Simulated scan of single mutants.
Amino acid sequence: MITNKLEKGLIHVYTGDGKGKTTAALGQAIRTAGGGFKVLIIQFLKGDDTGELYSIEKMSPDLQLIRFGAMKKFYFQLNEEEKIEIQNNIKEGLETIKRHLIEENYNLIVMDEIMAVLYNKIIDLDEVLTLLKSKPSHVEMILTGRDAPKELIDLADYVTEMQMIKHPFEEGIYARKGIES
């Protein structure tokens, strides 16, 4: 159980079609850990070998990142067996978050790409809403991903929409190591 508690834990939603949702969440996670608080980052549906995996483990013992439902292709491209495996792994991730909320192990919990989990109907929106409504009052939560449901936006204290105006992908420049991955 954490001994150093936040005065009040709020809910953030970083959404939109622009770059920067995970980057903003990781920036807040680093700031929170630097302030002497414990942070858990749960990444859903991310399978790429990204830079944050290596820097976070070097940064602070108070900053932990775990992935659930890692994929190398889009969810709609998976066969039924692969989808079931991903669904089970995502449910394990949600149970991990619930357990840490009950045990009050972290001051900040990031649910990175939870919107993609909801969009693909891997878990039900009501389950996420219930989790957020039942969190301890001193635990901060950040949820990221495109297409945030209105119910999450209404529940959140902070909502930031990243809007794509221009992106190198449009010019055929794909994710670059150290910048987008």
Rank of each mutant, 00 (worst) to 15 (best):
I56L: 12
M164L: 14
Q87Y: 13
H100C: 11
G178C: 12
L129R: 02
Y174M: 14
I56K: 04
G27N: 07
E161V: 03
K121W: 08
E82R: 02
D157I: 15
D154R: 14
K98C: 00
L118S: 02
E171D: 15
L45N: 04
K19H: 14
Y75Q: 02
I66Y: 09
M141N: 02
N120K: 12
K8C: 06
L45Q: 03
M59F: 14
L131P: 02
K121Y: 09
P168C: 14
M162G: 08
A116F: 09
I41Y: 00
L78I: 06
L108K: 01
G172Q: 02
K135S: 06
P61S: 13
K150T: 13
F169Y: 15
E180H: 12
T130D: 09
I114A: 03
F76A: 06
I179V: 15
M1Y: 08
M59W: 06
I173H: 11
Q43Y: 05
K58I: 05
S137W: 01
K177S: 12
H12L: 10
K91P: 01
H167G: 07
I11Y: 03
T96A: 09
G172F: 04
L152M: 12
N88H: 06
M162A: 14
F76G: 01
S55V: 12
N79G: 10
Q64I: 15
A156H: 07
D17L: 11
I2G: 00
I11N: 03
L6S: 00
N79H: 08
D112I: 05
P149V: 02
V159A: 06
A33C: 12
D157V: 14
I123R: 00
K19M: 12
E103Q: 14
F74R: 08
G145E: 02
L65F: 12
K166L: 13
H12G: 07
K150Y: 11
L53W: 03
G69I: 04
T96W: 04
E82L: 07
T32L: 15
Y106A: 09
T144F: 01
I122K: 08
T23K: 08
Y75E: 04
L125P: 01
N89L: 11
L125Q: 10
G16Q: 03
V110Q: 10
K21T: 08
K91R: 13
K8L: 15
N89H: 06
I41R: 01
L10G: 04
D49H: 06
G36N: 07
A24R: 07
A116W: 06
D154E: 15
A70T: 02
I102L: 10
L132I: 13
K91N: 10
L40H: 04
I142Q: 03
I165T: 14
L143P: 00
M59C: 08
Y54Q: 05
L101H: 00
P136H: 11
E95F: 07
G51P: 00
Q163G: 05
T23S: 15
I41D: 00
P61H: 08
E92Q: 13
M141E: 02
T160C: 05
G36T: 07
K133W: 07
T3Y: 07
G18A: 12
R67V: 03
R176D: 03
G9D: 01
A116Y: 09
L78T: 10
G18D: 04
L125R: 03
K83P: 03
Y174R: 13
A29W: 00
D126M: 08
K72V: 08
L155A: 10
L125F: 11
S60Y: 06
V110G: 07
I114Y: 00
I122P: 00
L125D: 06
R67E: 05
G172V: 07
M162N: 11
V117G: 03
E82T: 11
D126R: 04
